[in-house]
């Protein structure tokens, strides 16, 4: 896992539920590449066209609330999201994202500092987020050692595989 990434911000509002991240009508798709074609479609139909791998999603409170569908994390991983930074997360989405190795940072106040298109530099160890468009810096809550361990292993799958083989 890279310690620092940079990418363009795509900013969303509050209570972006997993139906908006990945609409229910596509839930029967299972191949990650297919799932990736509908990322954020319920909130922004042009998202997939404009988003590039490494770009960053910024959102208000309760990002990923609602349904437990892992498709919501799979679709963001499939489009290559560099990080998701929100004022707070729905808890199941948060677990799903971390499990798939997507850095999910909690950063109260972030919405006020970032506009869509701004370039952000994010340091996962310090939690520092620098908006290169404005020069401002804001700090996310540090990730716990438990979560950092999952992320630096590339998600929960390699970790469990290792534990399972050992037992």
């Amino acid at each position: 896992m890279q310690t620092e990434i940079s990418g363009r911000a795509f900013v969303f509002g509050i209570n972006i539920d997993t139906d908006q991240i990945y609409p229910g009508r596509y839930l029967d798709l299972t191949d990650p590449a297919d799932v990736g074609r509908h990322a954020m479609e319920g909130a922004d139909e042009s998202f997939v066209k404009n988003f590039q791998a490494g770009d960053i999603i910024v959102a208000g409170t309760n990002f990923g609330c609602g349904s437990s569908r892992e498709h919501a994390a799979v679709t963001l991983k499939a489009v290559g999201v560099g990080a998701v930074i929100a004022e707070s997360f729905g808890r199941i989405f948060f677990r799903n994202a971390i499990n798939l190795g997507i850095p999910a940072l909690i950063c109260p106040g972030i919405s006020r500092y970032v506009h869509t298109g701004d370039k952000l530099a994010v340091n996962f160890e310090s939690g520092e987020i620098r908006n290169e468009a404005t020069g401002q810096t804001i700090k996310a809550q540090p990730l716990s050692a438990y979560i950092m361990n999952i992320l630096s292993s590339g998600g929960i799958k390699p970790l469990i595989r290792q534990q399972y083989q050992q037992s």
Partner: peptide, 18 residues
């Protein structure tokens, strides 16, 4: 409590979850 697919898969493998 509700979880996603991969968390549930870890229960299938280990019988446990954090």
């Amino acid at each position: 409590t509700g979880v996603g697919a991969t968390d549930l898969a870890t229960i299938l493998m280990t019988g446990q979850l954090w």
